[in-house]
């Protein structure tokens, strides 16, 4: 029973049933700093993540 979040090749496994926003905080990521996609489509922070899903995260911060 896991949801997988993937950011820059790094995988995070979480329990299903939480919202995307809650899941991001759980792995210490700021919701403002990433976008999340499910099957290539962007999803909003209130989406409940289901068992077996793979959510691809896109980092949005750039600078230098």
């Amino acid at each position: 029973m896991t949801v997988k979040l993937v950011l820059r090749g790094k995988e995070y496994e979480l329990k299903p049933g939480m919202t995307l926003r809650q899941s991001l905080f759980k792995i210490d990521l700021q919701p403002e700093a990433v976008l999340a996609t499910r099957d290539g489509e962007l999803i909003t922070e209130d989406e409940i993540l289901q068992d077996g899903e793979v959510i691809k995260l896109v980092a949005v911060i750039s600078g230098g």
Binding site: Q30, A33, I61, G63
Partner: peptide, 25 residues
């Protein structure tokens, strides 16, 4: 280009952005 400039790692501007994003949350 998704990769960050190799010299941007650890830059002040990225650090400030992270701080501001915590505030924004």
């Amino acid at each position: 280009i998704y990769d960050e400039c190799p010299y941007a790692e650890g830059s002040k501007s990225i650090y400030y952005k992270e701080l501001l994003n915590k505030l924004e949350a």
